[in-house]
Amino acid sequence: MSVDHLVDIGITELYYEYIGGCNNSPTIVFESGYGWSLDNWQPIIEKISDFANVFMYDRDGIGKSGCSNRPKHSLQIVENQRTLLKKANIKPPYILVGHSFGGVNVRLFASNYPEEVIGVILLDSVHEDQNKKMVPLFTKEVQQRYLGQFTVEASLKEFEESLEQVRETNLGNIPLIVLTGGTQPHHTQESMDLWMEFQKELTELSTRSKHIVVEKAGHAIHMDSPDDVIDAIREMIAT
């Protein structure tokens, strides 16, 4: 069963796609990176839908969704997503998969609503200290590109508000898999070393976690090495 809809969540309409039919499986809920529509998950969706139910959506202001005048920070994003899941009748339990900025959002979701989440997978996830500590280690050119990107959905101010909103989150004993891309040429050696430290710190969010470095993948692990992400989702379902 495949469904795609625009749903009115009260402040705007959000677009989602759902592939179901795996009755004994939880729903895998995907949360995209900053500014990315749900289409970015296409390299892995077909294979995952063979063994799990799949839910993807476009955030407020992205892709086929509408654009509200509400803040685009993580606290609002999580409430939007949860309202959408309820209105679409996509019931928990969920396994949350968050890429980059999406990692912040799924952390906040799982921390605020742990009874609805049975697993979290972070794909090269944003870390709350990256703007303060890592960005100054980039080359000037990369710093400018990085800081200049915040025009698509959240502003730089809202993005940094999201980093603070997630700072005190804890996943308790919710199973957690952290995947990190090992080949990221936009980094300097110093910034990449710190990025790896950040990724290891993310595993400390849960008492049941593991860290996997995908050596040949860059920031978009699900595009560069889809089988590694599919394997992680299989492992999480088994857990």
Rank of each mutant, 00 (worst) to 15 (best):
E115I: 02
Q143W: 02
S111L: 07
P114I: 03
L108A: 09
A110R: 04
R145H: 12
F109S: 13
P136M: 09
V117K: 08
V106K: 02
D124H: 10
Y146H: 14
P136V: 05
K132A: 00
V126Y: 03
D129K: 11
P136K: 09
E141G: 00
Q143P: 02
K133M: 12
L123A: 04
V117R: 09
P114W: 03
D124K: 10
L147D: 15
V117P: 06
E115N: 13
L123I: 14
L147S: 14
P136Y: 06
P114M: 06
E116A: 03
V126E: 15
F109P: 09
K133Y: 12
D124V: 04
T151W: 06
S125N: 08
K140D: 15
L108V: 14
E141A: 10
L122G: 07
L137G: 02
T151A: 12
L123F: 02
P136R: 08
S125Y: 08
M134A: 09
K133H: 14
L122Q: 11
E128G: 09
Q144M: 13
V106Y: 02
N105R: 10
A110C: 08
R107Q: 15
Q149L: 06
M134W: 04
E141K: 11
E141M: 01
F138E: 04
L108M: 13
G119S: 10
Y113G: 11
F109N: 13
E128N: 14
L137Y: 03
F109G: 08
D124A: 12
E141S: 07
L108R: 09
T139I: 01
S111G: 15
E153A: 13
A154Q: 05
N131V: 00
V135N: 10
N131P: 00
